[in-house]
Simulated scan of single mutants.
Amino acid sequence: MRCFFQAAMVTMGMAAALPVSAEDSADPIRLALNEWSTQQVITQITGRLLQEIGRDVELVTAGYYPQMSALETGELTATVEIWTDNVPEGFSNQVDSGALKIVSSIGVTGQVGWWYPASFEATCPGLPDYKALKGCLDQLVSEDTYPKPRFVEYPADWGNTFNAERFAALGFDFAAVRAGSEGALVAEMKAAHKSGDPLLIMMYSPHVVYSLTDFKLLELPAYEPDCETEAAWGVNPDATFDCGFAPSSIYKVAWPGMKEKWPEAYALLQQINIPLDQYLEIARKTDVEGIAQEEVVDSWLAENTATWKAWVAAARGA
């Protein structure tokens, strides 16, 4: 999930089903391909549907953070899975200034937080309340973090989660160990699920790992925006970030000029919506069953024909 920008490009080969409208440019629409499977599959679905209305589509390998500058300049046209809990600094300013355009939600809401295996509750009564965890921290001490309890943090290139501020505000003294990748996070969770060993880890949901493990979300104080800026707010009157994490909206984001240059394609992009059950099914097929992404895309299109044809009709009408 989320890394660097490369100028690698794949031109989609499916023949266009409909002619380009008089309003839309004949220039290719360039969609960003990021590092994780759901994003890649949804991007390919989007590309195939844009071809259905006659657009030329190119898929461009792009890192999660660096793609923002390419979207500002129009080097990229759109990206389909931006999580608001994990965006580059300045993203809100880019949106507010009109440098980037939020198109619409993909139909899923995310949640990040601190997760633990259900087996931890047997030796740490009171979980999932975070206050109960304070009496069980010795169980999280590892050889490489002694004498501090171990906390597995996001990879460094996923940005600032403000966990250090949360540790201080909520009275924890963890040794944060950075995972090297999303795969490393998943491996930690699978290993703890299998062994029954205690673990506290930063992770996001929805994710297919929760269908393979019994991890639960630690209950931190409820999030409020003031928690991040007003020390007087919340359980610790002397610190900010004394709360959990905001729910994450998951958006499609576009170069601001897309709506004017390709109005019909933009209208179609607005329509595309992948419900949670379909999102998780895509992840299960690709990440658990190992089904090729092209096959997953074909299956989705075949199983949801009436849905996407309605999107196409709505875009044509717009």
Rank of each mutant, 00 (worst) to 15 (best):
R284D: 06
G54P: 03
I42S: 00
S25Q: 06
R150M: 08
W233N: 07
G317C: 04
K309M: 12
A8D: 11
W36S: 11
L59K: 08
E264A: 02
A70W: 09
N163V: 12
A168I: 07
F91I: 04
V152L: 14
V87L: 14
N273T: 11
A302R: 12
L200G: 02
K194D: 12
G74D: 00
N86H: 05
G171V: 12
D96G: 09
A265V: 06
S69C: 00
R2E: 09
P28M: 05
E182W: 13
G126S: 10
L76V: 05
A265C: 08
D197R: 09
E23S: 12
T79V: 10
W83F: 13
D287P: 03
D96M: 13
F241R: 11
K261P: 06
G159I: 12
Q271L: 05
A267H: 02
V235W: 08
A8L: 12
V57T: 01
W300V: 00
L49T: 02
L137E: 11
Y251I: 06
A267K: 02
A26V: 11
G317N: 14
L100P: 04
T145R: 07
R150F: 04
I45C: 03
M9T: 13
S249C: 00
W115D: 03
F162I: 04
G317A: 15
V235G: 09
T73C: 09
F151T: 01
Y116I: 08
D298M: 02
I106S: 05
D138A: 14
I274F: 13
Y223D: 09
T305L: 05
E303D: 15
D144L: 10
D56W: 00
T61M: 11
Y204M: 12
Q39T: 10
N304Y: 00
T84K: 07
A283S: 15
L76H: 03
L170W: 10
T240E: 06
S195F: 04
S105L: 11
G159C: 12
G47K: 00
S205N: 13
I29W: 01
P247G: 04
T145M: 07
M1N: 12
I45H: 02
H207P: 02
A184Q: 14
E219M: 03
D173Q: 15
T213R: 02
F5R: 00
A239M: 15
M189D: 07
V208A: 09
K259A: 15
E165A: 14
G171F: 13
Q94M: 15
W255N: 15
V208H: 10
R2L: 12
L133A: 12
L218S: 03
W300I: 01
E224Y: 11
E165N: 13
N86R: 09
